[in-house]
Amino acid sequence: MTTNIATLRGGVKIDRLRLVLGQGARAFEAVQDVSLDIAPGEFICLLGPSGCGKSTLLGALAGHIPASSGSITVDGTAISGPHPERGLVFQQHTLFPWKSVLANVAFGLKMQGVARKEREARARELIALVGLEGFEQHYPSQLSGGMRQRVEIARVLITHPRVMLMDEPFGALDAQTRLMMQHLLLDVWARIRTTIVFITHDIDEALFLADRIFVMSPRPGRIVEELRLDFERPRGAGLVTSPEFTRLKRHCLDLLHPEAHPQPLARLSPLGPPIEQLQRKTA
């Protein structure tokens, strides 16, 4: 299932993007003047403190949050709303609890009208790719947190998205499982080579996974520095103790240390504003 590099899609261009959330006196600028160019098949991380607009920016990439100004395109086409070619993986899984692993992974193809035999064959291939062969008939409640996230990744990949958007997908996992999932994700990405935009506030995770890191400022979120990582792939556990890894980690810590401390914000979902804001609006 290795993708030919020459056929890669998923080039992302963000040009002077500004995102304002809320209305009237409660409106605030979440993202300010962000410009990025992401090559097809590239693995990039957005690294920043909580409340800096990382998830808001991911929501705009997903098509759930409209741009206040500026633009986002994928392969030259402007984003105008959600689309299966931009798959989302959240920190908490979104699997159907009443469906088996096989049915969850195959669901996207079912919605596209793909015949049962074909969609289940493709689902089994991806289930094997994420290391869950033999668990096809299990239900989400019978799986560990790491296993559920593997199913989530397979579910998103089955429709061959141009871009996979990952919002701190391993944040709720224990340290050992998190490290295992990082290795698994890199192995899957090396075979599929879809473009990945990965949100994290964990410096080690960003340095271990990414081709490039875009470090964001506290709110309103701006790109304060781009770091290109030249570590060889495949990457092993020994990387995190290397002198260059340690140097870059110190540099990231310096970048993330804010000079001021703005009022904390509720963590924003890529699907839009916090639920309490919606409740106030409809009250």
Rank of each mutant, 00 (worst) to 15 (best):
Ala115Glu: 15
Ala115Leu: 14
Ala115Arg: 15
Arg116Ala: 14
Lys117Arg: 15
Lys117Cys: 08
Glu118Asn: 12
Ala121Leu: 13
Ala123Phe: 06
Arg124Asn: 15
Leu126Tyr: 11
Glu133Val: 04
Phe135Val: 06
Glu136Val: 08
Pro140Asp: 08
Leu143Ser: 05
Leu143Met: 10
Gly145Pro: 01
Met147Tyr: 04
Gln149Ser: 08
Arg150Ile: 06
Arg150Cys: 03
Glu152Gly: 15
Ala154Cys: 10
Arg155Tyr: 08
Thr159Ser: 12
Arg162Gln: 13
Met164Cys: 15
Leu165Phe: 07
Asp167Cys: 09
Gly171Met: 05
Gly171Asp: 07
Asp174Ala: 11
Thr177Leu: 06
Arg178Gln: 10
Leu186Thr: 04
Asp187Ser: 15
Asp187Cys: 05
Val188Met: 02
Val188Thr: 02
Val188Leu: 03
Val188Tyr: 01
Arg191Phe: 09
Ile192Asp: 03
Ile199His: 00
Thr200Ile: 02
His201Phe: 05
Asp204Arg: 05
Glu205Phe: 03
Ala206Asp: 01
Ala206Lys: 02
Ala206Phe: 02
Leu207Asp: 03
Leu209Gly: 00
Val215Cys: 10
Ser217Ile: 05
Pro218Ile: 08
Pro218Trp: 05
Pro218Tyr: 04
Val224Glu: 13
Glu225Ser: 07
Glu232Gly: 10
Pro234Glu: 03
Arg235Phe: 09
Gly238Glu: 12
Ser242Ile: 11
Pro243Leu: 09
Pro243Arg: 10
Phe245His: 06
Thr246Phe: 11
Leu248Pro: 10
Arg250Gly: 14
Leu255Tyr: 11
Leu256Gly: 09
Pro262Gly: 07
Pro262His: 13
Gln263Ser: 15
